[in-house]
Design a protein around this nucleic acid. Sequence first.
DNA 1: GTCGGTGCAAATGCTTTGCATTGAT
DNA 2: ATCAATGCAAAGCATTTGCACCGAC
Lengths: 160, 160
Amino acid sequence: MAPLCSVFRRYLKSRGLKYTNERADVLDAIIARDGVFEAEELLLELRRRSQRVSKATLYRTIHLLQDAGIIVQALFNSKQSHFQLIYGRQPRDHMVCMKSGRLIEFQNEELIALRNRICRELGWSPVGHRFQIYAVSPDADGTKAPAHKGQGPRSQPRSR
Amino acid sequence: MAPLCSVFRRYLKSRGLKYTNERADVLDAIIARDGVFEAEELLLELRRRSQRVSKATLYRTIHLLQDAGIIVQALFNSKQSHFQLIYGRQPRDHMVCMKSGRLIEFQNEELIALRNRICRELGWSPVGHRFQIYAVSPDADGTKAPAHKGQGPRSQPRSR
DNA sequence: GTCGGTGCAAATGCTTTGCATTGAT
DNA sequence: ATCAATGCAAAGCATTTGCACCGAC
């Protein structure tokens, strides 16, 4: 499989766009994180590597990477967007603990098969999906941890 | 099954909160829409019925309804939140057309079973889930419709 | 040398909050 | 009467955009 940077490069070229240092740095930071990430975290990662990229450029690059099929949106709690590297990997789905906020990723062949079957039955052509399970992790069963900021199925009283 | 308003009422009472006209109106509007909705749409629905509810109250009520387990968040494209009535119904999952933006809901027993199995295998206890399929609907195959504002799997060039 | 890219600061747009007033119990 | 709820306008915050300067091809 071609390294990600050349995939990106090829994509950019095909669109008449340029492969700049900033764009390369962002992609590197994403590869380094290897998991679900949000924009702010990437900014920190970049700073850690003393690679300065402005917020504006970061967001613009994230969009390009989505178009290029290298990353996709993931998760859907909290108001900020989360992304994950997808190119050349099995798509991963997520399970979030409602008590501790712990997040794990998993893959499931059956899910894909089921997804495709559902589409076929309705006459649609599958392109992608997003699946997130809300659950309670075994290690958090008695705990009342700080919990994720997001908003999955609610149940706790709000602070107000 | 108890009517929704009394479920809501009971929830509010249990928290020492009040059942106000505004809250009742919001719930009614949600029931009337019966499907996925966003805050702004509810505001319109309310206005149509000449029931004036401020934006602030609407959002506050939406949170209460989530806590009460009457509605849940749904979808995850676009930046605004989408919700759907859930209390006393089978949870519905969604399929969004990447070309036309068309949205359909579906239910699938197998999905729930699969979800539970995945949880069990990992030792977690399922609470809920969110599943959205990105696909192309049969009727939109050749079309280049106005498409949803959201951001599922990207593929089209951005406007910039 | 050309366009496209970048950073900055300002703008957006959804959602939340502070506060004085109003209303349900 | 009391304590919560409402509406308004202001504040928040992640993300986007306008613009002048910079840099990849």
